[in-house]
Write a protein that binds this DNA or RNA. Sequence first.
DNA 1: GCTTGACTTGGAGTACACTCCAACGTTTAT
DNA 2: ATAAACGTTGGAGTGTACTCCAAGTCAAGC
Lengths: 127, 127
Amino acid sequence: MTIAAVSRKYALTPDTLRYYERIGLLPPVARTSSGIRDYREDDCSWIEFIKCMRSAGLPIDFLVEYVKLFRQGDETLAQRIRMLKEQRDILAGRIADMHTSLDRLDMKIEHYENMMAPIEHEPKPME
Amino acid sequence: MTIAAVSRKYALTPDTLRYYERIGLLPPVARTSSGIRDYREDDCSWIEFIKCMRSAGLPIDFLVEYVKLFRQGDETLAQRIRMLKEQRDILAGRIADMHTSLDRLDMKIEHYENMMAPIEHEPKPME
DNA sequence: GCTTGACTTGGAGTACACTCCAACGTTTAT
DNA sequence: ATAAACGTTGGAGTGTACTCCAAGTCAAGC
C-alpha cells in the first residue's frame, strides 16, 4: 500500500504519516527496493490505533514511548498495561469534565430559549 | 478583586487573564483610577464560563465571537442560541468519539491482562 | 527516451495558545 | 520615604503538532 493510499484511507496527509514515523509514533514502515514506503496490515493497524488515541487527546510522548516499548517485546507488557491504565483514567476524567461542560451548555441553551419564548411564541395546535 | 486574586481563584496566570482580555475572550475589565484591573462578579462569571468551555475544547474564535455578540445585547440572542447549539452538538460528538477511544483502551487493557494472567497468577483464597 | 506524476529527504515555516520579558508605574509595609 | 511587591504595556519567545517546500529519485505511459 502506498503512502497516498494510506493517506486516503485514514484521512491523514502523507506529510503527517511521514512525520509520525519520523518521531516514532509509528514503527518504521517497510520499503520497496527503491526506498518507497510499502504499508502492510500491521502498519495500518498502528495508524488506526494511533489516530484513535490521538483524536482522544492522548499525548504524543506517551504514544511514542508506548510504541517503543511494544517493539521491545513481551517483557515490557506489565509496564505497558500500567501506562494504558494511567491514560485510561486520565481520559475518563476528561470525558467526565467535558460532560460537565456539555450539561452547562445545555442549561445555557435552555435558559436562553426560555428568554426567547415570549417573543417567538407560536401557539401550537392543541394536538 | 485584583488580577492576582482572580489568578489564584481560577488557576489561570495573570498573563493568561490579560491575554484573554486582549483577544476579546473576556470583556474589558473595569480599572481603578490608576489603571489597575478590578475584576467584578460579572468578570468572574465570564472567566469561569470561558475556562469551562475552553477546557471542553470549544474554539477560541467561537468564544470571542460569542462574547462580542453578548456585549451587543438582546438582539443577538437568537444567533447566540444557534451558535451554542452548534457547539453543543460538536461537543457531544467529541465526547462520543472519546468514549469510543476509551472503550478501545479498556479492551486493550483487558486483552493484555489476559496475556499476563498465566504468568502472575496468584491463587486467590476461595472466599 | 522523455514527460508526467508520485515518491524520497532534510529542513524551514505556520498556527495556535499561551508565556515570558523589559521597562516602567503604583501600593503597601516598615 | 524607601524598599519590596504587585500592577501595567507592547512585543518577543516557546512548545506542540503539524505543514510546506526544494531538490532530487523512480516508475509508467506515450
